[in-house]
Design a protein around this nucleic acid. Structure first.
Length: 569
RNA sequence: UGGGAUGUAGUGUAAUGGUAACACUGCAGAUUCUGGUUCUGCCUUUGGGGGUUCGAAUCCCUCCAUCCCAGCCA
């Protein structure tokens, strides 16, 4: 009940985009009252957590106002784009739980219309074919502080422009020879308005249009017109496009374009200890520093999925981050909080001993195995129970026994009684060590009256350990991931983000002992290894005969601090 | 040094002229068959300076800081 109230309260607080939409709706500025947004990725790479924010905003807004959100692949640069990316983008959006229905569009769908509009602009004297070289174009553009100057071709006769543009389309001119430009204002303080390029020549085969075109429209021309064609009401993008808004408004006000959508900008998502730029992510992959785009340490959606983050937790994260225009850096701990909060409710609890030592119960019958009942999830009464084999010889966590227990240590030590989770109370009696003095085995006795983990006389113990029966244990490879970078802002100090790579971002545990129910673990199932963290079987490498688990996130760990206080570390 | 934007606890986000708040983090404590969860409490905030006003995070002026823009990328 209380949780519901909180949600309601949070929903009452609107972000600036919601305010704009509600104002527009109230003022009747939205045709038929149907809000139409779009998510427009360029298919030139894998989607990452930054895109998750955009996906949630665009699809979320459409959902909230009962409108629709289009998926539009912004495929106007065939040199950089690939179908491989289109497939991954669609898969990732679906995984996030959003659906564009029939509204799957491509900027390339509009090439014919775009071409016609360009021709019309030429006819109206509003666009011209420029023969300046790329270097000259740059030179003529001026600088941030100095105005540009007009190209000598700016006053080229309309007929000649028409002929040249047609020849460009027919492939009669090499790349870079000509450029179709809008005739705006070379002296504009906004560089984007200094006669922006509309079309460039590119002899590049397109994934969808093949070799039909050898001229391709530029973003500033394509995007606003695509929005207009699709009837987008609110075109939402990131802050760096603010300077392009005048160009956007120019394009949507071209004669003959009926519908004039508006562009709004929000701050992109930044998270400390992460790099988000496609260039850097690509470099990490190419240098082999990670195991591909879907490495569980990568901030890509495919990496996040493989690591075991849930889409629900990602949506919650975006909601908590909020939407604003301030450039900000969200704390990684918020992400982890959201993941833990969601997984706590749904992850099946299992017992896994990561760093085992043997525990022998001297007064427990040899050769006997009994099944103890264990909750699958104490947070979910519908999760049911399972039976776990218990016997005389068990594995427990090395950390759960101390020869010289410091004050505050309430795990196993000689003379101390603890509970074996779901099973019995045991009291340590002696231990054995190897030549180096490392504990190899602990002897204990158990209280047969404490079956199920509670004693008949009601006495309490302070510690509870998880365990795995030696005879029934299975093995697996466990990959414990940590931050990929050890600096909040990778590269801030040295200028090279690779200098801040965390050398310990992956630790592989091979000696772990797992309860036998994990034999059937499959990718997609959320697991909690009790007292350790959340884990998921690896979708790439885990096989029935060689199980591999990825650590999604550790449990919140106050034990680490405790250890420091006690001088154990 | 042109243009565009943005400054609210450590972090993120609310409050649009009327008692500055929520979440995360951190720190205490309680509960607990996970040193998890849950619960309670605490810490810390309007970039600076002026002005308008009974009253300013909010309006005005000014200064400062930060981010974005000079692709035939998106």
């Amino acid at each position: 009940m209380e949780a519901e109230n909180k949600v309601t309260e949070a929903a009452e607080s609107m972000n600036f985009l919601e305010k704009i939409i509600e104002d527009d709706l109230a003022a009747g500025r939205v045709p038929d009252g149907v809000v139409v947004t779009r998510f427009p990725p360029e298919p030139n790479g894998y989607l990452h957590i930054g895109h998750i924010k955009s996906i949630c905003i665009n699809f979320g807004l459409a959902q909230k106002y009962r409108g629709r959100c289009h998926l539009r692949l912004d495929d106007t640069n065939p040199a950089k784009e690939d179908v491989e990316y289109i497939d991954s983008i669609k898969r990732d959006i679906k995984w996030m739980g959003f659906d564009w229905g029939i509204h799957e569009y491509y900027a390339s769908d509009y090439y014919d219309q775009l071409y016609e509009i360009a021709v019309r602009l030429i006819k109206e004297g509003k666009a011209y074919v420029d023969s300046l070289t790329p270097e000259q174009v740059k030179e003529y553009r001026g600088t941030l502080t100095q105005p540009g100057k007009n190209s000598p071709d700016r006053e080229r006769p309309i007929e000649e422009n028409l002929r040249l543009f047609e020849e460009m389309r027919q492939g009669k001119h090499p790349e870079g020879r000509y450029l179709l430009r809008a005739k705006l204002d070379m002296a504009s303080p906004n560089i984007n308005m200094r006669d922006p390029a509309l079309y460039r020549i590119k002899f590049e085969s397109h994934p969808r249009t093949g070799n039909k075109w050898c001229i391709y429209p530029m973003y500033d021309f394509t995007h606003p017109i695509s929005d207009a064609i699709e009837g987008i009401t609110h075109s939402i993008c990131t802050l760096e496009f603010e300077d392009h808004r005048p160009a956007y408004d120019w394009a949507t006000s071209i004669d003959g374009i009926e519908h004039a959508p508006h562009q709004y900008e929000f701050a992109r998502l930044n998270i400390n200890y992460f790099v988000m730029s496609k260039r850097k992510l690509l470099q990490l992959v190419k240098l082999g520093l990670v195991d591909g785009w879907d490495d569980p340490r990568m901030p890509t959606i495919s990496g996040i999925r493989r690591r075991g983050y849930s889409p629900e937790s990602m949506r919650d994260f975006v909601k908590r981050v909020g939407v604003a225009k301030v450039e900000s850096v969200v704390d990684f701990s918020l992400l982890e909080f959201c993941v833990r909060e969601d997984l706590n409710k749904r992850a099946r609890r299992v017992m896994v001993v990561l760093d085992p030592i043997k525990l022998v119960i001297d007064n427990y019958p040899e050769g006997k195995t009994e099944m103890v009942e264990a909750d699958n999830n104490p947070e979910d009464e519908n999760a049911g129970k399972r039976l776990v084999p218990f016997s005389r010889e068990l594995y427990i966590e090395r950390e759960d026994f101390a020869v010289n227990p410091p004050k505050g240590y309430h795990r196993l030590y000689i003379g101390n009684e603890i509970r074996l989770k779901h099973a019995y109370y045991v009291t340590a009696t002696s231990y054995e060590t190897d030549a180096d003095g490392n504990v190899t085995l602990v002897h204990c006795t158990y209280d047969p009256e404490s079956r199920g983990g509670a004693s008949a006389d009601g006495r309490k113990v302070k510690g509870t350990s998880h365990w795995v029966s030696v005879h029934d244990a299975i093995s697996a490879e466990i990959r414990q991931y940590d931050k990929l970078f050890s600096a909040e802002d990778p590269g801030a100090k040295t200028g090279n983000y690779l200098d801040d790579l965390n050398p310990d971002s992956l630790k592989v545990v091979t000696c772990a002992k797992l309860e036998s129910s994990l034999r059937d673990a499959r990718p997609g199932e959320y697991l909690q290894f009790m007292r350790s963290g959340y884990y998921m079987a690896d979708s790439k490498d885990s096989r029935p005969d060689h199980l591999v688990f990825n650590r999604t996130v550790t449990l919140k760990d106050s034990w680490e601090k405790m250890k420091q206080k006690m001088g154990l570390k």
